[in-house]
Design a protein around this nucleic acid. Structure first.
Lengths: 235, 235
DNA sequence: CTGGTTCTGTACGCTGACGAACATTGAATT
DNA sequence: AATTCAATGTTCGTCAGCGTACAGAACCAG
């Protein structure tokens, strides 16, 4: 099975709050287990819950035409799903689906908005997070346009490892093709190449990052840029 | 020269405000003339001014590596430049450059933040606008990935016509190539095709939309989706 | 009118990804 | 052990867009 992380499970957004606010948030939410491929939000639909991943992670997916979808963002324990509620609109701008199963804290959208109004620290922190998400969206647009599939795949694997908190996770070529907006065959080719270079190994959906430093080298700069932006803004 | 629009010059965000707020905003800002290719903001740099275009329009540009840039958004009199200040961060997330010369209202960033704190109506409206911008970013990511250049070019021309408020405007193939993240030659080919179909005509940078309905047909659905999203959110 | 510059058109070989189809391998089920 | 199915590997022709180079056309300045 999946490796159990030894890192204590928590959400970084919540962990950074002052004690009192953090307790409030924990009290107002319940712990749920997210299952792989579960749909947590649909574009244009009302947001019922927000989620703070705690080991699980979520993909933000944009659809243009029918059947052409692409991942535009990823949410792990460094973020939350539903941050657009800060803007006062309770309609989801994206599809959101669970990409890595695991626990998360769930809160009713209405409760979340009340907490936002109550705690200035929470609002400040989540505004900053939303800013980071915006940057990720733009980054992804450029990345998707200019970078070769192998580099994009490497970036995706690194981002996932960060959120899975372990060098092993489960994802098939079909799923990767969906996320990166390419054919399955394209993924097979790129993944084979990465494996031949000794950077990853995989079999029937079980991916292991073998050489992280090497993977960072073949990945596009977008990975580092994203990371830098996050730490710069969130402190 | 450029056609003078008969539409009374105003900014829709400001026009939608209650009278008192609108007067406050007008008082706190000055009218400036933006020149083509003027740089109004740079990624990572401090935002000094916000701009409300009034006939002019502005491109939001994302850079990944050096020399690979792509437009991720457009701001005309339907929006403003600097909306990310709502999130409490005075650093620009994008490059911004003037794409269509013309007048705009300019306000100091600090003043803008004060106005935001003062007027709940202003804050509400601009939050909604920021939500629309986020949607545009995601839309652009998908569009850039999946749609053919000719369709993307058609979309771009339509978006520009909306903001130029006239079927004629000035833009060269080199500039278009820059915005869409492709070679100049690619633009020439796509533009030639659109011209042969009788949808546009152009010469040495002077573009005229000849058949708007036809252009909408060859453009990708992203144009309509963007527009629908704007009206749905902004009312 | 002349020479320089900007804008647009065209050509050529290259390549990353596409679409579709088929083959193989490993795991789970019976 | 046999069967079934999901996951991965491979092949083949096609194509949009790339990089580069060059040529004509329109405009501008001297």
């Amino acid at each position: 099975m999946l490796s159990i992380s030894s890192v204590p499970l928590s959400n970084q957004l919540l962990a950074a709050l002052p004690m009192i606010d953090r307790l409030h948030m924990l009290e107002a939410s319940i712990s749920v287990d997210l299952e792989f491929s579960e749909v947590l939000a649909e574009r244009g639909e009302k947001i019922r819950y927000v989620y703070f991943p705690v080991g699980s992670f979520i993909s933000l997916v944009e659809a243009s035409d029918n059947e052409t979808r692409i991942e535009v963002g990823m949410v792990g324990d460094e973020g939350m799903l539903g941050s657009s509620l800060i803007l006062g609109i309770d309609v989801s701008p994206f599809h959101a689906l669970v990409q890595g199963a695991g626990p998360a804290l769930r809160m009713k959208a209405a409760t979340f908005r009340k907490e936002l109004a109550r705690s200035a620290g929470l609002e400040r922190s989540l505004k900053r997070y939303l800013y980071v998400v915006m940057g990720q969206l733009a980054q992804t647009a450029a990345c998707t346009r200019f970078h070769l599939l192998e580099a994009r795949l490497a970036r995706w694997l690194l981002m996932t490892e960060d959120r899975a908190h372990g060098e092993r996770f489960h994802v098939t070529h079909v799923f990767l093709a969906f996320m990166l907006g390419v054919r399955r065959v394209g993924i097979t080719k790129a993944a084979t190449s990465l494996q031949k270079q000794g950077l990853i190994s995989y079999s029937r959906g079980n991916v292991t990052i073998v050489n992280r430093a090497g993977l960072e080298k073949v990945s596009c700069s977008c990975y580092q840029l994203d990371k830098k932006a996050y730490t710069a803004i969130m402190k």
